[in-house]
Amino acid sequence: MFIVTIILGCLLGVAVGMNLPTISYSYSGYLAIAIIAALDSVFGGINSILQKHFDIKIFVSGFFGNAILAMLLTYLGERLNVDIYLAAVIVFVGRMFVNLSMIRRYYIEKWNNKNKITK
């Protein structure tokens, strides 16, 4: 059920995204940082599902909150002439790697257990 929804959502997203107009360059930096933040939330969500403490409220608030916060920080950095978005990128991508490694570990453990049982 979940997987069908995700695939359907992705396909619909491709269709919508293809038809949307491009944005101006000065805003594309904000959008990029928002995408990184959202992806971080997605991987965090997947990890939390696997750890069995997933909460849709935390996920949705993290998804939008992180994106908006990242954009605000980027804007602030632009105002202050400091590249704050770099810090945001480092933090989000770092967390993304951590989450991915957790996911990997979970599946490897699962596979190992399966092998043990069959033996």
């Binding site: 979940f2 959502g9 919508v16 949307l20």
Partner: peptide
């Protein structure tokens, strides 16, 4: 989750 997927993927494409 579906809406979030649509949103994320479309924004990535834009």
């Amino acid at each position: 989750i579906g809406i979030i997927c649509i949103l994320l993927v479309s924004v990535v494409f834009v």
